[in-house]
Design a binder for these strands. Structure first.
Lengths: 204, 204
DNA sequence: CGCGCCTTGACACCAAGTGCCATGCAGGGC
DNA sequence: GCCCTGCATGGCACTTGGTGTCAAGGCGCG
């Protein structure tokens, strides 16, 4: 077969169902709002049962939030790939910019998903919680990069938090302007503001 | 009667029930964990019905999170009260320090509540969402203080976000050390790191 | 062919919320 | 004193998110 033989049929089937589910969910949720759609509806639209839905996603929020989950890992791996000598502000700016650009460029669906998240308290809450995990991972990566001790030094945690604050602000502006404002420009402006703390404090 | 007559009896009754409810909730939740307690249990412990519980709190998370809600408003009013000439880093540091100190000094119950929140994903999510509101209000206050335009300038939003990141980090350390580390010291250390961005960018 | 593994659907079940209505209690006017 | 109005409550039914359990079906493998 032309499709990679090293991936088992069962796994490809799993992925197919998962895609069908997210597809149906995003479509319906964007159309009727988060509370206007039941899980049964989503499952039915994807041609599976409610029980199966929960075998793929832990909660209703999860379908939406997991759609953006790759971004978190993306930022971290991007950061890990930056040259070692680069100042934190530059490394972090690139890491965030690349990820947000990848998301924004993907399709205008990303925009609608972000707007849905930011406009739905329950989704926003879950999204922020996931961001908290990103922050932790970013902090670890930063500590490793700069050879700092996370247990005593507050810098890694704060720097990661600042970078994600910038990320958040960019997302908010971007979705608020209906995609009109350029995420890359917004990122640069945001990081220009927080950079003094990112770099000056690193060598303290 | 000695109790202020300008407050109607009905209102005092409402407050009494509300207190009873939070009391019962915090006690039970700290004891058996967030998922180990049902609303019926909490309501029964407070001597009311489940239906009445939801007339006082919007959700199970709300009881816990609202217990710390005053802090958000506290930070903002504290900021509003700082002298106009004060640099943002100092004003924000004081605003956050005072609020967190008020919380920490209140009782060791505050510590247990914070630990409960940070250790329970559902609660943490709600807490972060509430913080997002604080950030918005703080940003507005900052924009007003510095006579900036929130619609164009990214600084207010970012500065508020950085301050709350510091706040978050302090809370995390404080709860992680079981209250051993001094919140005031932690706040100072955190703000020392973010201050360069807070002050330098303000006059850009 | 027959044997296990994995996925699914169906069903029952619990807990979070919500709408609705009846009841009871306080205060205010007559 | 009596009624009437407003409000807080409780009980109840109902929807929905989410989970445990079990039986049935497809698929690979010897």
């Amino acid at each position: 077969m032309s499709t990679r033989p090293e991936v088992s049929l069962a796994q490809r089937k799993r992925e197919l169902v998962s895609n069908e589910l997210t597809e149906a969910a995003l479509q319906l949720l964007a159309l009727k709002g988060f509370d206007g759609v039941t899980i049964d509806e989503i499952a039915a639209a994807a041609g599976v049962s409610k029980r199966t839905f929960f075998r793929y996603f832990a909660s209703k929020e999860d379908v939406v939030v997991q759609f953006l989950a790759e971004m978190g890992a993306g930022i971290r791996t991007e950061l890990a790939g930056r040259p070692a000598g680069e100042p934190p502000s530059v490394a972090l700016r690139h890491s965030v910019s690349v990820s947000v650009a990848a998301c924004a460029g993907h399709s205008d669906r990303a925009l609608r998903v972000v707007q849905l998240i930011l406009g739905t308290p329950a989704l926003h809450a879950r999204f922020l919680e996931r961001q908290a995990h990103w922050r932790d991972e970013l902090a670890t990566e930063l500590a490793h990069r700069l050879d700092l001790d996370r247990a005593t030094d507050l810098y890694p945690q704060l720097a990661a938090g600042m970078a994600l604050t910038a990320f958040d602000t960019v997302l908010q502006r971007w979705s608020g302007s209906d995609g009109a404002e350029d995420p890359a420009v917004l990122s640069d402006r945001a990081f220009a503001i927080i950079a003094p703390a990112l770099d000056r404090a690193a060598q303290a």
